[in-house]
Amino acid sequence: MTLRDERVTLAHGGGGKAMRDLIESVFTSVFNPPGMEDQARLMHASLQEPGARLAFTTDSFVVTPVEFPGGDIGKIAVCGTVNDLAVGGAKPLWLSVSFIIEEGCEVALLRRLVASMAREAEKAGVRIVTGDTKVVNRGACDTVYITTAGVGVIPSGRDLDARSIRPGDVALVNHVLGDHGAAILAARGDLMLSTDLESDCQSLGHLMEALIAAAPGTKAARDATRGGLASTLNEMAEAAGCSVELDETALPLRPEVKGVCEILGLDPLYLANEGTLVAFVPEAEAEAALAALRAMPEGQGACIVGRAVPKGNVPVTLRTAFGGTRIVDMLVGEQLPRIC
């Protein structure tokens, strides 16, 4: 079926034929969900294994611009939810997807986003099984917002939990830091910066499986999205009941990310990532974990960034290149570019 309109109108959200045409032409023909009821009816062998647990998560995605170097809002909506499942030790299986579309949004853009989602879902080994669309007045949202929910299965005996982190455990990342945040800042255009940076947006399900296989003692992992590595580590350290010490000289950063941060007075530790996780593993398994991560394309930048230490006054500190120490705090509000 072809769609005559080039732009989405309120009619496409009206519940009538226009809406059905949009959904069939743009969404279901690509996602190809199982069955056409208002619900997905699902079965998976891994769910029936004794001790297996269901993992369930949801996330909403709002990003300007909706297409950017290295990805788009559709790709992020798949990666983000897949990653929320994966870093908790779940094997991601199914996603739901819900679009809030601004009146006037180009249908061609929606098609590109949907294709991008389908591609990423296939790569991540998940199916998009159900969804919804709504159309809102111009100005009521910014082009398109996407909400995804995801279901996965945690195999029996696997229990990743930040509370199990102990002093001496090593903190690893799989990728250089801050690519997404810096790429988006540049892509927005209002700061008139141009770079070759691309978002690190990628699904981490396969990488997590490889990590756990190589380092079965892996304690916990999180994806360092909004608020960056700094905020993620603060959350983990608070849960863990120990502190974390980062090594400034070990932090992996691209020169361009450093450049963006120098120009705008930002701290790369707080820049968002969309395909970067931080995992705590026992020191004895650190080398095996690194080797496993580096063997995969998603983990080629893997390295140790710090370690858990006995609980101090603050959750996260950073040892500077000169042996000084500073606090790495939670972010207060949003990081704003500064001149002074």
């Binding site: 500077t320 290149a321 000169f322 042996g323 000084g324 120490t325 500073r326 002074c340």
Partner: peptide, 14 residues
């Protein structure tokens, strides 16, 4: 800016 750098690099403690 100097204040910021002193703390950022932990120079006051060194």
């Amino acid at each position: 800016g100097h204040t910021h750098a002193i703390f950022r690099y932990g120079l006051d403690k060194l």
